Lab assay of single mutants.
Amino acid sequence: MEVRTIKVFTTVDNINLHTQVVDMSMTYGQQFGPTYLDGADVTKIKPHNSHEGKTFYVLPNDDTLRVEAFEYYHTTDPSFLGRYMSALNHTKKWKYPQVNGLTSIKWADNNCYLATALLTLQQIELKFNPPALQDAYYRARAGEAANFCALILAYCNKTVGELGDVRETMSYLFQHANLDSCKRVLNVVCKTCGQQQTTLKGVEAVMYMGTLSYEQFKKGVQIPCTCGKQATKYLVQQESPFVMMSAPPAQYELKHGTFTCASEYTGNYQCGHYKHITSKETLYCIDGALLTKSSEYKGPITDVFYKENSYTTTIK
């Protein structure tokens, strides 16, 4: 009895394709271990004539594949690729409408935090270190965002349907971005203890939790000093293409032309909904596939993004 075979390709990165001759009487799992086709788990399936010449994702289970996976995804987590594939199996079914010149995501599976993050990423200057993220990001900007969303979920250790947080998501993504040249110098002034300067680099240099107003941050924000008295913390120097200011959701007025974009969060910790506000020729609110415009805006804002380049204080 002759062994019926077909020729397929296996890959971990969709760049390096490895030619395989597979036995049609055995499952993919018996031949390769966990195997995925377009995100779908085909591990328990036997090869079919229609699979001839198709590319299958496999887990990096030998040295060659491990090197290829690390170079593309910059992670050695053995569960990463499987999590990416199972997320992709959902995100490829989502709709990605162009809204006001940006790629958004039609609401499904509690994905409003991903839509808000995706919209924000198209408006701030950011370059990702893992080629996987950078490639998928370019495709997302062009309207094909399924891979990018699935990668975000995998890097953030999230599953489809789980509630997510924009600030946490951005923080994970910033860790995989090139923020080497970003720098922030802060000064804390206390009447009792004097003053202390701190220099922050990388992710810490672009994120701040405690106030939404970048102007206020430049002037000074009140913080408790270690001595128990009130101290003032203010920005001395900022070198970065953008800054992200966050605070627990509270009524906040966004003035046209003073910011790049913002995240609105309605609801409580267990259950809520994100919308995205962007400042173009007027203010726009993007909620999944829905767009509304207004000249002014007041609502429960939790993150505001500002364009920056270089700032030095005039406070002496």
Rank of each mutant, 00 (worst) to 15 (best):
E2P: 11
V3E: 12
T5K: 08
K7I: 15
T10D: 06
T11D: 05
V12K: 09
V12L: 10
I15P: 05
I15K: 09
N16H: 14
N16C: 08
N16M: 12
L17W: 06
V22Y: 05
V22W: 03
D23Q: 10
S25Q: 12
M26P: 06
Y28M: 08
F32W: 15
F32Q: 11
G33F: 04
G33N: 04
L37C: 12
L37M: 14
L37Y: 13
A40S: 12
V42R: 07
T43M: 12
T43G: 15
K44Y: 15
I45T: 13
I45C: 15
K46T: 13
P47M: 05
H48M: 14
N49T: 12
S50I: 15
G53N: 15
Y57I: 11
L59P: 07
L59N: 15
P60E: 10
N61L: 12
T64P: 13
E68Q: 11
A69M: 09
A69V: 13
F70I: 09
F70L: 15
T76K: 14
D77A: 07
P78T: 11
S79H: 12
S79I: 10
M85F: 15
S86Y: 08
A87L: 08
L88R: 05
L88C: 05
L88P: 04
N89D: 12
N89V: 15
T91A: 06
P97W: 08
V99E: 04
W107T: 02
W107H: 03
D109E: 11
N110Y: 04
N111I: 04
C112S: 03
C112P: 05
Y113S: 03
A115C: 13
A117L: 07
A117R: 03
T120M: 06
I124P: 03
L126Y: 04
F128S: 03
N129T: 09
P130F: 02
P130G: 00
P131I: 04
A132V: 05
A132R: 04
L133G: 02
Q134N: 12
D135T: 10
A136I: 03
Y137C: 08
A140H: 04
A142H: 14
N147K: 10
L153I: 09
L153M: 10
A154S: 08
Y155E: 02
G161E: 04
G161R: 06
E162C: 05
L163F: 10
D165I: 03
E168F: 06
T169W: 02
M170N: 04
M170D: 00
M170Q: 01
Y172M: 08
Q175S: 10
H176A: 05
L179T: 05
S181L: 09
C182I: 00
K183C: 09
K183W: 05
K183N: 06
R184G: 10
R184Q: 06
R184W: 02
V188W: 07
V189D: 14
C190V: 02
C193V: 02
Q196W: 15
Q196C: 11
T198S: 12
T199D: 07
T199M: 10
L200Q: 15
K201L: 14
V203S: 13
V203L: 10
E204C: 07
M207I: 07
M207A: 08
M207D: 01
T211I: 14
T211A: 12
L212T: 06
S213A: 05
S213K: 02
S213N: 13
Y214T: 02
K218I: 06
K219F: 07
K219G: 10
G220H: 02
G220I: 01
V221H: 08
Q222C: 10
Q222T: 13
I223Q: 12
P224R: 13
P224S: 12
T226N: 11
G228M: 03
K229C: 15
Q230A: 12
Q238Y: 01
F242A: 05
M244D: 01
M244F: 03
M245S: 01
S246G: 02
S246Q: 00
Q251V: 11
Y252S: 05
E253K: 08
E253M: 11
L254Y: 00
L254K: 01
K255E: 15
G257I: 00
F259T: 00
T260F: 06
T260L: 15
A262T: 01
Y265T: 00
T266G: 07
T266V: 14
G267P: 05
G267S: 07
Y269N: 11
Q270N: 12
C271Y: 09
C271G: 12
G272Y: 01
G272S: 01
H276C: 08
I277A: 02
I277M: 04
S279Y: 03
S279E: 01
K280Q: 12
K280G: 13
T282L: 11
L283S: 00
I286V: 07
D287G: 00
D287I: 00
A289T: 08
T292C: 08
K293D: 08
K293M: 12
K293G: 07
S294D: 08
S295M: 11
E296G: 13
K298F: 10
G299I: 00
P300R: 07
T302F: 00
D303I: 00
D303R: 01
V304D: 00
V304R: 00
F305Q: 01
F305I: 12
E308A: 08
N309K: 10
T312D: 15
T312H: 09
T313W: 08
I315G: 08
K316V: 14
